[in-house]
Design a protein around this nucleic acid. Structure first.
Lengths: 295, 295
DNA sequence: AAAATAATGTACCATGAGTATAAAATGAAG
DNA sequence: CTTCATTTTATACTCATGGTACATTATTTT
Protein backbone atom coordinates (compact mmCIF):
# COMPACT_ATOMS: atom_id res chain seq x y z
CA UNK A 1 0.00 0.00 0.00
CA UNK A 2 1.18 3.44 -0.95
CA UNK A 3 2.55 5.49 1.90
CA UNK A 4 0.72 8.61 0.88
CA UNK A 5 -2.52 6.73 0.78
CA UNK A 6 -1.86 5.70 4.34
CA UNK A 7 -1.53 9.32 5.32
CA UNK A 8 -4.88 10.06 3.82
CA UNK A 9 -6.42 7.15 5.66
CA UNK A 10 -5.02 8.35 8.94
CA UNK A 11 -6.23 11.87 8.35
CA UNK A 12 -9.70 10.63 7.43
CA UNK A 13 -9.78 8.39 10.45
CA UNK A 14 -8.98 11.32 12.69
CA UNK A 15 -11.80 13.30 11.21
CA UNK A 16 -14.28 10.45 11.30
CA UNK A 17 -13.52 9.87 14.95
CA UNK A 18 -13.89 13.52 15.79
CA UNK A 19 -16.86 14.45 13.69
CA UNK A 20 -18.43 11.20 12.62
CA UNK A 21 -18.60 9.76 9.16
CA UNK A 22 -21.63 11.61 7.90
CA UNK A 23 -20.46 14.91 9.21
CA UNK A 24 -17.09 14.74 7.57
CA UNK A 25 -17.05 16.02 4.03
CA UNK A 26 -14.58 15.07 1.37
CA UNK A 27 -13.40 18.65 1.48
CA UNK A 28 -12.55 18.24 5.16
CA UNK A 29 -10.41 15.26 4.33
CA UNK A 30 -8.77 17.12 1.50
CA UNK A 31 -7.88 20.01 3.78
CA UNK A 32 -6.70 17.77 6.59
CA UNK A 33 -4.47 15.61 4.45
CA UNK A 34 -3.35 18.32 2.02
CA UNK A 35 -4.21 16.54 -1.14
CA UNK A 36 -6.40 17.44 -4.03
CA UNK A 37 -9.71 16.00 -4.91
CA UNK A 38 -8.28 14.25 -7.92
CA UNK A 39 -5.78 12.43 -5.76
CA UNK A 40 -8.42 11.36 -3.33
CA UNK A 41 -10.49 9.79 -6.04
CA UNK A 42 -7.34 8.24 -7.36
CA UNK A 43 -6.99 6.34 -4.13
CA UNK A 44 -10.61 5.65 -3.34
CA UNK A 45 -13.53 5.21 -5.64
CA UNK A 46 -15.76 6.92 -3.12
CA UNK A 47 -16.05 8.14 0.42
CA UNK A 48 -17.40 4.74 1.32
CA UNK A 49 -14.31 2.97 0.07
CA UNK A 50 -12.19 5.28 2.10
CA UNK A 51 -14.17 4.27 5.14
CA UNK A 52 -13.82 0.63 4.28
CA UNK A 53 -10.07 1.05 4.11
CA UNK A 54 -10.11 2.61 7.56
CA UNK A 55 -12.22 -0.15 8.98
CA UNK A 56 -9.97 -2.77 7.46
CA UNK A 57 -6.91 -1.12 8.91
CA UNK A 58 -8.43 -0.98 12.36
CA UNK A 59 -9.46 -4.57 12.11
CA UNK A 60 -5.99 -5.59 11.07
CA UNK A 61 -4.51 -3.78 14.02
CA UNK A 62 -6.90 -5.44 16.40
CA UNK A 63 -6.08 -8.82 14.92
CA UNK A 64 -2.37 -8.27 15.31
CA UNK A 65 -2.59 -6.97 18.83
CA UNK A 66 -4.84 -9.71 20.09
CA UNK A 67 -2.66 -12.29 18.43
CA UNK A 68 0.46 -10.88 20.05
CA UNK A 69 -1.10 -11.38 23.44
CA UNK A 70 -1.44 -15.09 22.99
CA UNK A 71 2.00 -15.92 21.63
CA UNK A 72 3.82 -18.25 23.96
CA UNK A 73 1.00 -18.10 26.48
CA UNK A 74 -1.33 -20.73 27.80
CA UNK A 75 -4.40 -20.78 25.53
CA UNK A 76 -6.60 -21.90 28.42
CA UNK A 77 -5.72 -18.86 30.52
CA UNK A 78 -8.88 -16.92 31.12
CA UNK A 79 -7.06 -13.67 31.82
CA UNK A 80 -5.35 -13.77 28.48
CA UNK A 81 -8.70 -14.20 26.81
CA UNK A 82 -10.05 -11.25 28.74
CA UNK A 83 -7.14 -9.11 27.64
CA UNK A 84 -7.56 -10.19 24.07
CA UNK A 85 -11.21 -9.32 23.99
CA UNK A 86 -10.46 -6.08 25.73
CA UNK A 87 -7.92 -5.19 23.08
CA UNK A 88 -10.50 -5.83 20.46
CA UNK A 89 -12.98 -3.59 22.18
CA UNK A 90 -10.31 -1.06 22.91
CA UNK A 91 -9.39 -0.74 19.28
CA UNK A 92 -13.01 -0.56 18.36
CA UNK A 93 -13.62 2.20 20.84
CA UNK A 94 -10.41 4.10 20.20
CA UNK A 95 -11.21 4.35 16.59
CA UNK A 96 -14.90 4.77 17.15
CA UNK A 97 -15.35 1.72 15.03
CA UNK A 98 -18.37 0.34 16.79
CA UNK A 99 -20.34 3.50 16.28
CA UNK A 100 -19.26 3.61 12.68
CA UNK A 101 -20.01 -0.08 12.36
CA UNK A 102 -23.48 0.26 13.68
CA UNK A 103 -24.33 3.38 11.85
CA UNK A 104 -23.20 1.85 8.63
CA UNK A 105 -24.65 -1.48 9.22
CA UNK A 106 -28.14 -0.18 9.28
CA UNK A 107 -29.35 2.55 7.02
CA UNK A 108 -26.13 2.32 5.07
CA UNK A 109 -25.26 1.20 1.62
CA UNK A 110 -25.25 -2.54 1.03
CA UNK A 111 -21.58 -2.66 0.10
CA UNK A 112 -20.56 -1.23 3.43
CA UNK A 113 -23.03 -3.47 5.18
CA UNK A 114 -21.41 -6.50 3.67
CA UNK A 115 -17.96 -5.47 4.79
CA UNK A 116 -18.97 -4.61 8.30
CA UNK A 117 -20.87 -7.83 8.67
CA UNK A 118 -17.86 -9.85 7.65
CA UNK A 119 -15.72 -8.10 10.20
CA UNK A 120 -18.19 -8.77 12.91
CA UNK A 121 -18.69 -12.40 12.04
CA UNK A 122 -14.97 -12.82 11.90
CA UNK A 123 -14.73 -11.62 15.45
CA UNK A 124 -17.43 -14.00 16.53
CA UNK A 125 -15.73 -16.88 14.83
CA UNK A 126 -12.49 -16.15 16.58
CA UNK A 127 -14.18 -15.87 19.94
CA UNK A 128 -15.93 -19.21 19.61
CA UNK A 129 -12.57 -20.83 19.03
CA UNK A 130 -11.08 -19.19 22.07
CA UNK A 131 -14.00 -20.14 24.23
CA UNK A 132 -13.45 -23.77 23.41
CA UNK A 133 -9.78 -23.25 24.25
CA UNK A 134 -10.66 -21.93 27.67
CA UNK A 135 -13.73 -23.90 28.64
CA UNK A 136 -12.70 -27.20 27.15
CA UNK A 137 -14.15 -29.52 24.56
CA UNK A 138 -17.32 -29.98 26.55
CA UNK A 139 -18.28 -26.40 25.75
CA UNK A 140 -18.02 -26.93 22.01
CA UNK A 141 -21.73 -27.43 21.35
CA UNK A 142 -22.46 -24.23 23.24
CA UNK A 143 -19.59 -22.06 22.19
CA UNK A 144 -21.61 -20.14 19.62
CA UNK A 145 -24.36 -19.34 22.05
CA UNK A 146 -21.80 -18.42 24.63
CA UNK A 147 -20.07 -16.15 22.17
CA UNK A 148 -23.24 -14.34 21.29
CA UNK A 149 -24.19 -13.86 24.91
CA UNK A 150 -20.73 -12.77 25.96
CA UNK A 151 -20.39 -10.32 23.14
CA UNK A 152 -23.79 -8.87 23.79
CA UNK A 153 -23.10 -8.38 27.47
CA UNK A 154 -19.76 -6.74 26.87
CA UNK A 155 -20.94 -4.44 24.16
CA UNK A 156 -23.90 -3.22 26.09
CA UNK A 157 -21.93 -2.73 29.26
CA UNK A 158 -19.37 -0.66 27.46
CA UNK A 159 -22.16 1.31 25.92
CA UNK A 160 -23.70 2.07 29.29
CA UNK A 161 -20.35 2.82 30.80
CA UNK A 162 -19.71 5.37 28.13
CA UNK A 163 -23.07 6.95 28.78
CA UNK A 164 -22.94 7.12 32.53
CA UNK A 165 -19.31 7.56 33.48
CA UNK A 166 -16.94 10.19 32.34
CA UNK A 167 -13.76 8.38 33.32
CA UNK A 168 -11.79 6.58 30.69
CA UNK A 169 -12.99 3.05 30.53
CA UNK A 170 -10.85 0.04 31.15
CA UNK A 171 -12.36 -2.68 29.01
CA UNK A 172 -10.47 -5.42 30.79
CA UNK A 173 -12.60 -4.96 33.88
CA UNK A 174 -15.78 -5.08 31.87
CA UNK A 175 -14.68 -8.13 29.95
CA UNK A 176 -13.66 -9.94 33.11
CA UNK A 177 -17.00 -9.20 34.67
CA UNK A 178 -18.79 -10.54 31.63
CA UNK A 179 -16.66 -13.65 31.57
CA UNK A 180 -17.58 -14.11 35.19
CA UNK A 181 -21.22 -14.21 34.16
CA UNK A 182 -20.38 -16.70 31.48
CA UNK A 183 -18.84 -18.89 34.15
CA UNK A 184 -22.27 -19.08 35.70
CA UNK A 185 -24.06 -19.70 32.44
CA UNK A 186 -21.94 -22.20 30.60
CA UNK A 187 -21.92 -25.07 33.11
CA UNK A 188 -25.70 -25.01 33.22
CA UNK A 189 -25.93 -25.00 29.46
CA UNK A 190 -23.53 -27.90 29.28
CA UNK A 191 -25.50 -29.77 31.92
CA UNK A 192 -28.80 -29.17 30.14
CA UNK A 193 -27.32 -29.85 26.76
CA UNK A 194 -29.55 -27.37 24.98
CA UNK A 195 -28.50 -25.00 22.26
CA UNK A 196 -30.29 -22.07 20.78
CA UNK A 197 -29.02 -19.81 18.07
CA UNK A 198 -25.60 -21.31 18.16
CA UNK A 199 -26.23 -23.99 15.59
CA UNK A 200 -27.67 -21.47 13.16
CA UNK A 201 -24.68 -19.25 13.49
CA UNK A 202 -22.30 -22.14 13.10
CA UNK A 203 -24.03 -23.32 9.95
CA UNK A 204 -24.21 -19.83 8.62
CA UNK A 205 -20.54 -19.20 9.12
CA UNK A 206 -19.60 -22.41 7.40
CA UNK A 207 -21.88 -21.74 4.46
CA UNK A 208 -21.58 -18.08 3.74
CA UNK A 209 -18.36 -17.04 5.19
CA UNK A 210 -15.17 -18.39 3.85
CA UNK A 211 -12.21 -16.27 4.70
CA UNK A 212 -9.98 -15.08 1.97
CA UNK A 213 -7.26 -17.66 1.65
CA UNK A 214 -3.65 -16.71 2.03
CA UNK A 215 -1.57 -19.12 -0.06
CA UNK A 216 1.97 -20.02 0.67
CA UNK A 217 3.01 -18.92 -2.82
CA UNK A 218 1.55 -15.50 -2.30
CA UNK A 219 3.29 -15.16 1.03
CA UNK A 220 6.66 -16.22 -0.35
CA UNK A 221 6.34 -13.80 -3.22
CA UNK A 222 5.48 -10.99 -0.87
CA UNK A 223 8.34 -11.83 1.46
CA UNK A 224 10.85 -12.00 -1.37
CA UNK A 225 9.75 -8.67 -2.73
CA UNK A 226 10.07 -7.23 0.73
CA UNK A 227 13.49 -8.76 1.19
CA UNK A 228 14.80 -7.21 -2.02
CA UNK A 229 13.44 -3.79 -1.13
CA UNK A 230 15.45 -4.08 2.06
CA UNK A 231 18.88 -4.65 0.54
CA UNK A 232 20.05 -1.03 0.70
CA UNK A 233 19.27 -0.40 4.35
CA UNK A 234 21.29 -1.67 7.27
CA UNK A 235 18.60 -3.36 9.27
CA UNK A 236 20.53 -6.40 10.30
CA UNK A 237 17.93 -7.83 12.65
CA UNK A 238 15.10 -7.27 10.21
CA UNK A 239 17.00 -9.00 7.44
CA UNK A 240 17.70 -11.99 9.61
CA UNK A 241 14.08 -12.33 10.58
CA UNK A 242 13.00 -11.99 6.99
CA UNK A 243 15.37 -14.64 5.78
CA UNK A 244 14.45 -16.97 8.59
CA UNK A 245 10.79 -16.61 7.72
CA UNK A 246 11.53 -17.24 4.07
CA UNK A 247 13.49 -20.42 4.70
CA UNK A 248 11.14 -21.69 7.39
CA UNK A 249 8.16 -21.31 5.14
CA UNK A 250 9.81 -23.26 2.37
CA UNK A 251 10.53 -26.28 4.52
CA UNK A 252 8.54 -29.36 3.73
CA UNK A 253 6.92 -29.45 7.14
CA UNK A 254 7.15 -25.86 8.32
CA UNK A 255 7.60 -25.28 12.03
CA UNK A 256 4.63 -23.07 12.56
CA UNK A 257 5.41 -22.36 16.18
CA UNK A 258 8.81 -21.02 15.27
CA UNK A 259 7.35 -18.89 12.55
CA UNK A 260 4.72 -17.63 14.93
CA UNK A 261 7.37 -16.72 17.44
CA UNK A 262 9.36 -14.79 14.89
CA UNK A 263 6.53 -12.82 13.37
CA UNK A 264 6.31 -10.49 16.31
CA UNK A 265 9.98 -9.44 16.49
CA UNK A 266 9.98 -9.29 12.71
CA UNK A 267 7.17 -6.82 12.83
CA UNK A 268 8.64 -4.81 15.69
CA UNK A 269 12.05 -4.52 14.11
CA UNK A 270 10.65 -2.39 11.32
CA UNK A 271 8.69 -0.06 13.55
CA UNK A 272 9.58 3.50 12.70
CA UNK A 273 11.19 2.65 9.38
CA UNK A 274 9.67 3.20 5.99
CA UNK A 275 9.09 -0.54 5.83
CA UNK A 276 6.79 -0.57 8.84
CA UNK A 277 3.54 -0.59 6.89
CA UNK A 278 4.58 -3.39 4.56
CA UNK A 279 6.04 -5.40 7.42
CA UNK A 280 2.81 -5.19 9.35
CA UNK A 281 0.85 -6.29 6.35
CA UNK A 282 3.13 -9.28 5.92
CA UNK A 283 2.92 -10.08 9.62
CA UNK A 284 -0.80 -10.06 9.41
CA UNK A 285 -0.84 -12.33 6.41
CA UNK A 286 1.53 -14.71 8.13
CA UNK A 287 -0.79 -14.94 11.09
CA UNK A 288 -3.77 -15.52 8.88
CA UNK A 289 -1.83 -18.24 7.12
CA UNK A 290 -0.79 -19.94 10.32
CA UNK A 291 -4.31 -19.79 11.61
CA UNK A 292 -5.47 -21.52 8.47
CA UNK A 293 -3.01 -24.35 8.94
CA UNK A 294 -4.00 -24.83 12.55
CA UNK A 295 -7.60 -25.68 11.86
CA UNK B 1 -51.59 16.63 17.57
CA UNK B 2 -52.91 17.56 14.17
CA UNK B 3 -54.38 14.67 12.24
CA UNK B 4 -52.68 15.62 9.03
CA UNK B 5 -49.37 15.79 10.77
CA UNK B 6 -49.92 12.25 11.91
CA UNK B 7 -50.45 11.18 8.34
CA UNK B 8 -47.15 12.70 7.39
CA UNK B 9 -45.46 10.93 10.25
CA UNK B 10 -46.88 7.61 9.18
CA UNK B 11 -45.85 8.15 5.60
CA UNK B 12 -42.34 9.11 6.63
CA UNK B 13 -42.13 6.14 8.91
CA UNK B 14 -43.07 3.85 6.07
CA UNK B 15 -40.35 5.31 3.92
CA UNK B 16 -37.73 5.27 6.65
CA UNK B 17 -38.43 1.63 7.31
CA UNK B 18 -38.25 0.75 3.65
CA UNK B 19 -35.34 2.87 2.53
CA UNK B 20 -33.61 4.00 5.69
CA UNK B 21 -33.39 7.46 7.09
CA UNK B 22 -30.44 8.69 5.09
CA UNK B 23 -31.76 7.36 1.85
CA UNK B 24 -35.14 8.98 2.17
CA UNK B 25 -35.28 12.49 0.83
CA UNK B 26 -37.72 15.14 1.90
CA UNK B 27 -39.08 14.98 -1.61
CA UNK B 28 -39.90 11.30 -1.12
CA UNK B 29 -41.87 12.16 1.96
CA UNK B 30 -43.64 14.95 0.13
CA UNK B 31 -44.67 12.61 -2.67
CA UNK B 32 -45.73 9.83 -0.34
CA UNK B 33 -47.86 11.99 1.90
CA UNK B 34 -49.11 14.37 -0.79
CA UNK B 35 -48.19 17.57 0.89
CA UNK B 36 -46.03 20.44 -0.17
CA UNK B 37 -42.64 21.37 1.10
CA UNK B 38 -44.02 24.40 2.86
CA UNK B 39 -46.41 22.27 4.84
CA UNK B 40 -43.72 19.86 5.82
CA UNK B 41 -41.58 22.61 7.22
CA UNK B 42 -44.66 23.95 8.92
CA UNK B 43 -44.91 20.75 10.88
CA UNK B 44 -41.26 19.98 11.42
CA UNK B 45 -38.35 22.30 11.71
CA UNK B 46 -36.17 19.77 9.95
CA UNK B 47 -35.91 16.23 8.75
CA UNK B 48 -34.42 15.37 12.12
CA UNK B 49 -37.44 16.62 13.99
CA UNK B 50 -39.63 14.54 11.80
CA UNK B 51 -37.58 11.53 12.76
CA UNK B 52 -37.80 12.44 16.41
CA UNK B 53 -41.56 12.56 16.12
CA UNK B 54 -41.56 9.09 14.60
CA UNK B 55 -39.32 7.73 17.30
CA UNK B 56 -41.48 9.26 19.97
CA UNK B 57 -44.59 7.73 18.47
CA UNK B 58 -42.99 4.32 18.29
CA UNK B 59 -41.87 4.61 21.84
CA UNK B 60 -45.34 5.60 22.95
CA UNK B 61 -46.82 2.60 21.19
CA UNK B 62 -44.34 0.29 22.83
CA UNK B 63 -45.12 1.80 26.20
CA UNK B 64 -48.83 1.34 25.73
CA UNK B 65 -48.57 -2.22 24.47
CA UNK B 66 -46.25 -3.38 27.17
CA UNK B 67 -48.40 -1.75 29.78
CA UNK B 68 -51.51 -3.44 28.46
CA UNK B 69 -49.87 -6.79 28.96
CA UNK B 70 -49.45 -6.26 32.66
CA UNK B 71 -52.91 -5.01 33.51
CA UNK B 72 -54.65 -7.35 35.90
CA UNK B 73 -51.78 -9.80 35.74
CA UNK B 74 -49.36 -11.00 38.33
CA UNK B 75 -46.34 -8.67 38.28
CA UNK B 76 -44.07 -11.49 39.41
CA UNK B 77 -44.96 -13.65 36.43
CA UNK B 78 -41.81 -14.22 34.42
CA UNK B 79 -43.68 -14.99 31.23
CA UNK B 80 -45.45 -11.68 31.32
CA UNK B 81 -42.13 -9.96 31.67
CA UNK B 82 -40.81 -11.91 28.71
CA UNK B 83 -43.78 -10.89 26.62
CA UNK B 84 -43.40 -7.28 27.64
CA UNK B 85 -39.77 -7.14 26.69
CA UNK B 86 -40.56 -8.95 23.48
CA UNK B 87 -43.17 -6.35 22.62
CA UNK B 88 -40.62 -3.68 23.15
CA UNK B 89 -38.16 -5.39 20.88
CA UNK B 90 -40.87 -6.22 18.40
CA UNK B 91 -41.89 -2.61 18.08
CA UNK B 92 -38.30 -1.61 17.77
CA UNK B 93 -37.72 -4.12 15.02
CA UNK B 94 -41.00 -3.59 13.21
CA UNK B 95 -40.30 0.04 12.91
CA UNK B 96 -36.62 -0.45 12.37
CA UNK B 97 -36.11 1.70 15.39
CA UNK B 98 -33.01 0.02 16.71
CA UNK B 99 -31.15 0.53 13.50
CA UNK B 100 -32.29 4.09 13.39
CA UNK B 101 -31.46 4.47 17.06
CA UNK B 102 -27.97 3.19 16.68
CA UNK B 103 -27.22 4.97 13.51
CA UNK B 104 -28.39 8.20 14.98
CA UNK B 105 -26.86 7.72 18.31
CA UNK B 106 -23.41 7.71 16.91
CA UNK B 107 -22.35 9.88 14.07
CA UNK B 108 -25.59 11.78 14.36
CA UNK B 109 -26.44 15.25 15.45
CA UNK B 110 -26.35 15.91 19.17
CA UNK B 111 -30.02 16.79 19.37
CA UNK B 112 -31.02 13.41 18.05
CA UNK B 113 -28.48 11.76 20.25
CA UNK B 114 -30.04 13.29 23.31
CA UNK B 115 -33.49 12.10 22.39
CA UNK B 116 -32.45 8.58 21.58
CA UNK B 117 -30.46 8.32 24.75
CA UNK B 118 -33.44 9.32 26.83
CA UNK B 119 -35.56 6.70 25.19
CA UNK B 120 -33.04 4.04 25.83
CA UNK B 121 -32.46 4.98 29.44
CA UNK B 122 -36.18 5.05 29.95
CA UNK B 123 -36.38 1.47 28.79
CA UNK B 124 -33.61 0.47 31.13
CA UNK B 125 -35.30 2.19 34.02
CA UNK B 126 -38.51 0.37 33.38
CA UNK B 127 -36.77 -2.97 33.12
CA UNK B 128 -34.96 -2.54 36.42
CA UNK B 129 -38.27 -2.01 38.11
CA UNK B 130 -39.75 -5.10 36.53
CA UNK B 131 -36.76 -7.20 37.45
CA UNK B 132 -37.27 -6.33 41.07
CA UNK B 133 -40.94 -7.25 40.64
CA UNK B 134 -40.01 -10.66 39.35
CA UNK B 135 -36.90 -11.55 41.29
CA UNK B 136 -37.89 -10.02 44.57
CA UNK B 137 -36.45 -7.36 46.83
CA UNK B 138 -33.24 -9.29 47.26
CA UNK B 139 -32.36 -8.52 43.66
CA UNK B 140 -32.67 -4.79 44.15
CA UNK B 141 -28.98 -4.06 44.56
CA UNK B 142 -28.26 -5.98 41.36
CA UNK B 143 -31.19 -5.01 39.23
CA UNK B 144 -29.27 -2.44 37.23
CA UNK B 145 -26.48 -4.82 36.42
CA UNK B 146 -29.01 -7.47 35.58
CA UNK B 147 -30.82 -5.08 33.30
CA UNK B 148 -27.70 -4.15 31.44
CA UNK B 149 -26.70 -7.77 30.98
CA UNK B 150 -30.15 -8.89 29.96
CA UNK B 151 -30.60 -6.12 27.49
CA UNK B 152 -27.20 -6.72 25.98
CA UNK B 153 -27.84 -10.42 25.54
CA UNK B 154 -31.22 -9.91 23.96
CA UNK B 155 -30.14 -7.21 21.60
CA UNK B 156 -27.18 -9.11 20.35
CA UNK B 157 -29.09 -12.32 19.95
CA UNK B 158 -31.73 -10.60 17.90
CA UNK B 159 -29.01 -9.04 15.85
CA UNK B 160 -27.42 -12.39 15.12
CA UNK B 161 -30.76 -13.95 14.45
CA UNK B 162 -31.49 -11.33 11.88
CA UNK B 163 -28.16 -11.97 10.24
CA UNK B 164 -28.22 -15.72 10.14
CA UNK B 165 -31.84 -16.74 9.79
CA UNK B 166 -34.29 -15.70 7.19
CA UNK B 167 -37.42 -16.71 9.08
CA UNK B 168 -39.40 -14.08 10.89
CA UNK B 169 -38.13 -13.87 14.39
CA UNK B 170 -40.22 -14.48 17.44
CA UNK B 171 -38.66 -12.26 20.06
CA UNK B 172 -40.45 -14.02 22.89
CA UNK B 173 -38.27 -17.08 22.44
CA UNK B 174 -35.14 -15.01 22.46
CA UNK B 175 -36.21 -13.07 25.49
CA UNK B 176 -37.13 -16.21 27.39
CA UNK B 177 -33.79 -17.72 26.60
CA UNK B 178 -32.02 -14.63 27.84
CA UNK B 179 -34.09 -14.56 31.02
CA UNK B 180 -33.11 -18.15 31.51
CA UNK B 181 -29.48 -17.08 31.53
CA UNK B 182 -30.31 -14.37 33.98
CA UNK B 183 -31.77 -17.03 36.25
CA UNK B 184 -28.31 -18.52 36.40
CA UNK B 185 -26.56 -15.22 36.93
CA UNK B 186 -28.68 -13.37 39.44
CA UNK B 187 -28.60 -15.83 42.36
CA UNK B 188 -24.82 -15.87 42.23
CA UNK B 189 -24.67 -12.11 42.16
CA UNK B 190 -27.00 -11.93 45.13
CA UNK B 191 -24.95 -14.50 47.00
CA UNK B 192 -21.71 -12.67 46.30
CA UNK B 193 -23.23 -9.29 46.95
CA UNK B 194 -21.08 -7.53 44.41
CA UNK B 195 -22.24 -4.87 41.99
CA UNK B 196 -20.52 -3.40 39.01
CA UNK B 197 -21.89 -0.75 36.73
CA UNK B 198 -25.28 -0.89 38.32
CA UNK B 199 -24.66 1.73 40.93
CA UNK B 200 -23.32 4.15 38.35
CA UNK B 201 -26.35 3.73 36.18
CA UNK B 202 -28.68 4.12 39.13
CA UNK B 203 -27.01 7.31 40.21
CA UNK B 204 -26.90 8.60 36.70
CA UNK B 205 -30.58 7.99 36.14
CA UNK B 206 -31.51 9.75 39.34
CA UNK B 207 -29.30 12.72 38.62
CA UNK B 208 -29.69 13.38 34.95
CA UNK B 209 -32.92 11.87 34.00
CA UNK B 210 -36.14 13.19 35.37
CA UNK B 211 -39.15 12.23 33.34
CA UNK B 212 -41.47 14.90 32.19
CA UNK B 213 -44.17 15.15 34.81
CA UNK B 214 -47.79 14.65 33.92
CA UNK B 215 -49.86 16.72 36.34
CA UNK B 216 -53.39 15.90 37.34
CA UNK B 217 -54.52 19.35 36.23
CA UNK B 218 -53.11 18.83 32.79
CA UNK B 219 -54.80 15.46 32.54
CA UNK B 220 -58.16 16.78 33.63
CA UNK B 221 -57.96 19.65 31.20
CA UNK B 222 -57.09 17.29 28.39
CA UNK B 223 -59.89 14.91 29.29
CA UNK B 224 -62.47 17.69 29.49
CA UNK B 225 -61.44 19.03 26.13
CA UNK B 226 -61.73 15.56 24.74
CA UNK B 227 -65.11 15.03 26.33
CA UNK B 228 -66.51 18.20 24.77
CA UNK B 229 -65.20 17.32 21.33
CA UNK B 230 -67.14 14.09 21.71
CA UNK B 231 -70.58 15.53 22.28
CA UNK B 232 -71.79 15.29 18.67
CA UNK B 233 -70.95 11.64 18.09
CA UNK B 234 -72.87 8.69 19.44
CA UNK B 235 -70.11 6.76 21.11
CA UNK B 236 -71.98 5.72 24.20
CA UNK B 237 -69.31 3.44 25.60
CA UNK B 238 -66.55 5.93 24.97
CA UNK B 239 -68.47 8.69 26.71
CA UNK B 240 -69.05 6.54 29.74
CA UNK B 241 -65.39 5.66 30.00
CA UNK B 242 -64.42 9.27 29.60
CA UNK B 243 -66.78 10.46 32.30
CA UNK B 244 -65.74 7.68 34.62
CA UNK B 245 -62.11 8.64 34.19
CA UNK B 246 -62.93 12.28 34.79
CA UNK B 247 -64.79 11.63 38.01
CA UNK B 248 -62.37 9.01 39.26
CA UNK B 249 -59.44 11.33 38.79
CA UNK B 250 -61.12 14.06 40.77
CA UNK B 251 -61.72 11.93 43.82
CA UNK B 252 -59.68 12.80 46.83
CA UNK B 253 -57.98 9.44 46.89
CA UNK B 254 -58.27 8.20 43.34
CA UNK B 255 -58.63 4.49 42.81
CA UNK B 256 -55.70 3.99 40.53
CA UNK B 257 -56.43 0.37 39.88
CA UNK B 258 -59.86 1.19 38.60
CA UNK B 259 -58.50 3.92 36.43
CA UNK B 260 -55.85 1.59 35.13
CA UNK B 261 -58.46 -1.00 34.31
CA UNK B 262 -60.54 1.49 32.38
CA UNK B 263 -57.78 3.05 30.36
CA UNK B 264 -57.54 0.09 28.03
CA UNK B 265 -61.23 -0.19 27.07
CA UNK B 266 -61.33 3.60 26.89
CA UNK B 267 -58.56 3.53 24.36
CA UNK B 268 -59.99 0.62 22.40
CA UNK B 269 -63.46 2.12 22.18
CA UNK B 270 -62.16 4.91 19.98
CA UNK B 271 -60.20 2.71 17.63
CA UNK B 272 -61.17 3.52 14.07
CA UNK B 273 -62.85 6.79 14.92
CA UNK B 274 -61.40 10.23 14.34
CA UNK B 275 -60.77 10.42 18.07
CA UNK B 276 -58.41 7.46 18.07
CA UNK B 277 -55.23 9.48 18.01
CA UNK B 278 -56.26 11.81 20.80
CA UNK B 279 -57.59 8.94 22.88
CA UNK B 280 -54.33 7.09 22.61
CA UNK B 281 -52.42 10.15 23.65
CA UNK B 282 -54.63 10.53 26.69
CA UNK B 283 -54.33 6.85 27.52
CA UNK B 284 -50.62 7.14 27.42
CA UNK B 285 -50.61 10.18 29.65
CA UNK B 286 -52.87 8.41 32.09
CA UNK B 287 -50.48 5.51 32.28
CA UNK B 288 -47.56 7.80 32.79
CA UNK B 289 -49.48 9.54 35.54
CA UNK B 290 -50.43 6.33 37.30
CA UNK B 291 -46.87 5.13 37.10
CA UNK B 292 -45.76 8.33 38.77
CA UNK B 293 -48.15 7.83 41.63
CA UNK B 294 -47.08 4.25 42.12
CA UNK B 295 -43.47 5.02 42.92
C1' DA C 1 16.26 13.45 -21.91
C1' DA C 2 11.94 11.02 -22.82
C1' DA C 3 8.09 8.56 -21.48
C1' DA C 4 5.04 7.10 -18.08
C1' DT C 5 2.75 7.76 -13.93
C1' DA C 6 0.97 10.48 -10.15
C1' DA C 7 -0.93 14.78 -8.48
C1' DT C 8 -3.17 19.24 -8.93
C1' DG C 9 -6.55 22.77 -9.93
C1' DT C 10 -10.46 24.13 -11.79
C1' DA C 11 -14.74 23.96 -13.62
C1' DC C 12 -18.74 21.39 -13.75
C1' DC C 13 -23.07 18.31 -12.70
C1' DA C 14 -26.66 16.38 -9.78
C1' DT C 15 -28.95 15.92 -5.60
C1' DG C 16 -30.84 17.18 -1.50
C1' DA C 17 -31.74 20.22 2.71
C1' DG C 18 -33.67 24.23 3.86
C1' DT C 19 -35.57 29.33 2.92
C1' DA C 20 -38.60 32.81 0.97
C1' DT C 21 -42.70 34.30 -0.76
C1' DA C 22 -46.65 35.22 -3.41
C1' DA C 23 -50.90 33.06 -4.66
C1' DA C 24 -54.64 29.93 -3.57
C1' DA C 25 -57.52 27.29 -0.44
C1' DT C 26 -59.76 26.74 3.75
C1' DG C 27 -62.15 27.95 7.82
C1' DA C 28 -64.21 30.64 11.39
C1' DA C 29 -66.81 34.92 12.99
C1' DG C 30 -69.82 38.44 12.31
C1' DC D 1 -72.39 35.64 2.55
C1' DT D 2 -68.57 38.34 3.41
C1' DT D 3 -64.32 39.16 5.67
C1' DC D 4 -60.24 38.21 7.87
C1' DA D 5 -56.79 34.96 9.43
C1' DT D 6 -54.58 30.82 9.05
C1' DT D 7 -53.01 26.97 6.45
C1' DT D 8 -51.46 25.04 2.21
C1' DT D 9 -49.43 25.13 -2.24
C1' DA D 10 -46.29 26.10 -5.87
C1' DT D 11 -42.26 27.81 -7.42
C1' DA D 12 -37.99 29.59 -7.38
C1' DC D 13 -33.91 30.09 -4.92
C1' DT D 14 -29.40 29.28 -1.88
C1' DC D 15 -25.97 26.40 -0.22
C1' DA D 16 -23.39 22.31 0.82
C1' DT D 17 -21.78 18.06 -0.77
C1' DG D 18 -20.51 13.88 -3.51
C1' DG D 19 -18.70 12.86 -7.60
C1' DT D 20 -16.82 13.55 -12.69
C1' DA D 21 -13.87 15.44 -16.43
C1' DC D 22 -9.87 17.11 -18.04
C1' DA D 23 -6.06 19.96 -19.09
C1' DT D 24 -1.83 21.21 -16.65
C1' DT D 25 2.02 20.36 -13.77
C1' DA D 26 5.28 17.45 -10.77
C1' DT D 27 7.73 13.31 -10.08
C1' DT D 28 9.61 8.83 -11.27
C1' DT D 29 11.36 5.47 -14.12
C1' DT D 30 14.04 3.99 -17.81
Amino acid sequence: MNNRKRQVIIASQKLFIKKGFQNTSIQDILDESHISKGTFYNYFASKNECLIAILAMGREQADVRKHELLIGQDPTDKDILAKQIAVLMQVNREQNLIPIFESIFHSGEPELKEVVMKFHLNELKWLTKRIVDVYGEASKPHCFDATILLFGMIQHMLHIWKLTREDALDPVQVVKYAICQLDAILPIQIANGDTFLGCDLAKYLQRNFNNKVVTKEYLLEQLEGFSEGLSEDNLQAGKEYTNCLLTSLQEEIPHYYIIEAIVLPFNSSFKGTIHAAEAQEIANHLWLYIRQQNV
